[in-house]
Computed example of a mutant assay.
Amino acid sequence: MTIDVDAVLVASSERVPAPAGRASGNLLAPFTPWLSTLAILLLWTAVSAGGLIGPRALPSPFDVLAAAWELTANGRLPAALVASLARVLAGTALGLVLGLGAGLLAGYYRVGEMVVDRPLQMLRAVPFNALVPLFIVAFGIGELMKVSLIAVGVLVPIYLNTFAGVRNVDSKLVEVGLVYRVPQRLIASKILFLGALPSILTGLRFSLAIAWIALVTSETVNTNAGVGYILAQAQRFVRTDQVFLCIVIYALLGILTDYLVRRLEGRLLAWRKSYDGR
Results as ranks from 00 to 15, higher is better:
residue 76 R to D: 12
residue 133 P to R: 10
residue 136 I to L: 12
residue 77 L to T: 02
residue 266 G to A: 05
residue 259 Y to T: 13
residue 21 G to T: 07
residue 82 V to Q: 06
residue 150 I to P: 11
residue 176 V to P: 00
residue 34 W to R: 10
residue 163 F to S: 06
residue 134 L to D: 14
residue 180 Y to L: 15
residue 101 G to M: 08
residue 97 V to W: 10
residue 146 K to P: 01
residue 180 Y to Q: 13
residue 188 A to G: 06
residue 271 W to P: 03
residue 25 G to V: 08
residue 36 S to G: 03
residue 264 L to V: 11
residue 240 T to D: 04
residue 93 A to T: 09
residue 258 D to I: 02
residue 46 A to T: 11
residue 34 W to K: 06
residue 190 K to R: 15
residue 170 D to C: 01
residue 27 L to V: 15
residue 270 A to C: 01
residue 211 A to C: 00
residue 259 Y to W: 11
residue 116 V to K: 04
residue 250 Y to C: 01
residue 218 S to W: 02
residue 224 N to W: 14
residue 26 N to E: 14
residue 242 Q to W: 08
residue 67 A to C: 08
residue 189 S to Q: 14
residue 116 V to Q: 00
residue 168 N to D: 10
residue 25 G to S: 04
residue 271 W to H: 12
residue 131 L to P: 00
residue 28 L to Y: 04
residue 259 Y to H: 09
residue 136 I to A: 02
residue 271 W to Y: 09
residue 163 F to G: 01
residue 32 T to C: 08
residue 257 T to A: 10
residue 85 L to R: 07
residue 135 F to P: 04
residue 216 V to E: 02
residue 180 Y to C: 11
residue 152 V to N: 01
residue 108 Y to D: 13
residue 205 R to V: 14
residue 181 R to V: 07
residue 102 A to P: 07
residue 208 L to W: 02
residue 91 G to Y: 00
residue 249 I to E: 08
residue 225 A to N: 14
residue 203 G to S: 05
residue 86 A to G: 12
residue 237 F to D: 02
residue 200 I to T: 02
residue 103 G to C: 12
residue 15 R to L: 14
residue 99 G to Y: 04
residue 205 R to H: 10
residue 8 V to I: 12
residue 5 V to W: 14
residue 199 S to G: 06
residue 81 L to N: 05
residue 100 L to S: 00
residue 196 A to L: 09
residue 246 C to S: 05
residue 26 N to W: 10
residue 8 V to N: 05
residue 82 V to W: 11
residue 54 G to H: 09
residue 200 I to M: 15
residue 28 L to I: 01
residue 245 L to D: 00
residue 115 V to K: 06
residue 275 Y to D: 08
residue 277 G to I: 13
residue 126 V to W: 08
residue 228 G to R: 09
residue 204 L to V: 00
residue 64 V to N: 06
residue 238 V to G: 07
residue 233 Q to R: 09
residue 167 R to C: 06
residue 23 A to C: 11
residue 191 I to M: 12
residue 253 L to K: 02
residue 97 V to R: 09
residue 172 K to N: 15
residue 269 L to K: 03
residue 101 G to F: 15
residue 63 D to K: 01
residue 68 A to D: 10
residue 122 M to D: 03
residue 65 L to M: 13
residue 19 P to T: 02
residue 247 I to A: 12
residue 33 P to S: 03
residue 27 L to A: 15
residue 87 R to I: 03
residue 49 A to L: 03
residue 5 V to R: 09
residue 172 K to T: 13
residue 191 I to C: 00
residue 7 A to Y: 10
residue 137 V to F: 15
residue 89 L to H: 09
residue 81 L to F: 14
residue 50 G to T: 05
residue 130 A to S: 09
residue 219 E to Q: 07
residue 110 R to Y: 13
residue 240 T to Q: 11
